[in-house]
């Protein structure tokens, strides 16, 4: 069952009407098929219109949509022979971040990313995609492995943020993230990150200090959640939609700010409406980015990656 968002209500109503009509087609009435066609066209038009001008707060909802394709969906469709590799060799295996080697369009790669889960059971298993220090330490370990075997790295970012808990603090959440950023900036292999849903603060940048940063059309990437920002600066969580505007967290904003290198278009009505199409487009974009980086030698790659991040924020908006 597709979950409908508040602003999709008119679309949901039309779609349920279509559903009702479809049940009647058994009668063989020709007018009904025609009616369904008309309604479907209307739905498509409405979806196109709605999704073409989503407000930042609506983008936040789409980016967090429970039916949106997640890490496992991408890996399942894009990576052959995926071999997940577990554990940080120090404390635990953190299922909020999955990492492993596999084959992407012919080439061996390392893929890492947060998995949010798709139902109650998997959400709890993956801790809603909120990783702990052991998760970020596993990433460091795997990135070093990738460097040793000259495997390009693909990071799929989808997290509300790193997990805020007592144990996570005790085991050095901050240090784990800092070292993860350091590792991203150090490795002499191509590194491409795609923000596939939510890019939540430190938990996201930990695996996104990359040569190329792609963002899905309706994904978001922010220093703080709009709710968190609203509660601090407006002292009122309900001002989250205002905060979402002020923070400039949409893919389009980030492209303009020079943080995202490329926006990957989503199917009409968002990635959650067509997993296969969405994943295929992301796959193509990743392939293009990796093929551009493949020929470059490691030292140059690392140098350029650093130069790119040294420039971050030095341009103002035009």
């Amino acid at each position: 069952m597709l979950t409908f968002l508040e602003f999709e209500k008119p679309i949901a109503e039309l779609e349920s009407k279509i559903e009702e009509l479809r049940h009647l087609t058994d009668n063989g009435d020709i007018n009904i098929a025609e009616e369904v066609g008309k309604l479907q066209a209307k739905v498509d038009r409405l979806l196109r219109q709605t999704y073409a001008k989503l407000l930042p707060a609506q983008k936040v909802q789409v980016a967090r949509h429970p039916n949106r394709p997640h890490f496992t969906d991408y890996v399942g469709a894009l990576i052959e022979d995926f071999s997940p590799l577990a554990g940080d060799r120090a404390y635990a295996e953190d299922r909020a971040i999955i990492g492993g080697i596999g084959r992407f369009r012919g080439y061996s790669v390392l893929v890492v990313g947060q998995e949010k889960g798709h139902d109650t059971e998997t959400r709890i298993l993956h801790n809603f995609g909120a990783a702990k220090p052991e998760g970020y330490r596993k990433v460091q370990r795997l990135m070093q492995l990738a460097e040793r075997f000259q495997l390009p790295v693909i990071c799929l970012v989808d997290t509300a943020g790193a997990y805020p808990g007592v144990g996570a603090e005790q085991r050095g959440q901050a240090e784990a993230i800092a070292r993860c950023i350091e590792t991203c900036l150090r490795i002499k292999v191509p590194l491409v990150a795609a923000i596939i849903g939510e890019g939540g603060s430190g938990g996201a940048i930990a695996i996104a200090a990359a040569d190329r940063v792609l963002m899905l059309e309706h994904s978001i990437y922010s220093v703080i959640s709009p709710e968190g920002c609203a509660s601090i600066l407006w002292r009122d969580r309900t001002q989250a939609s205002e905060a979402a505007i002020a923070l400039r967290l949409t893919a389009q904003d980030l492209k303009e700010l020079g943080v995202a290198d490329q926006i990957v278009s989503e199917p009409i009505g968002g990635a959650h409406r067509d997993h296969a199409a969405s994943i295929a487009v992301v796959g193509d974009a990743l392939e293009t980015a990796l093929s551009e980086l493949r020929g470059q030698d490691g030292t140059t790659l690392r140098l350029r990656r650093r130069e790119k991040f040294i420039e971050m924020g030095m341009h103002t908006l035009s």
């Binding site: 800092a178 430190g202 940048i205």
Partner: peptide
Amino acid sequence: GARMQEGILSLMQMPRTVIAVE
């Protein structure tokens, strides 16, 4: 921590300062 009023650009100071240290 990061300065919210500079949005994502404040987050980008994390890799930026890591490079400084490097």
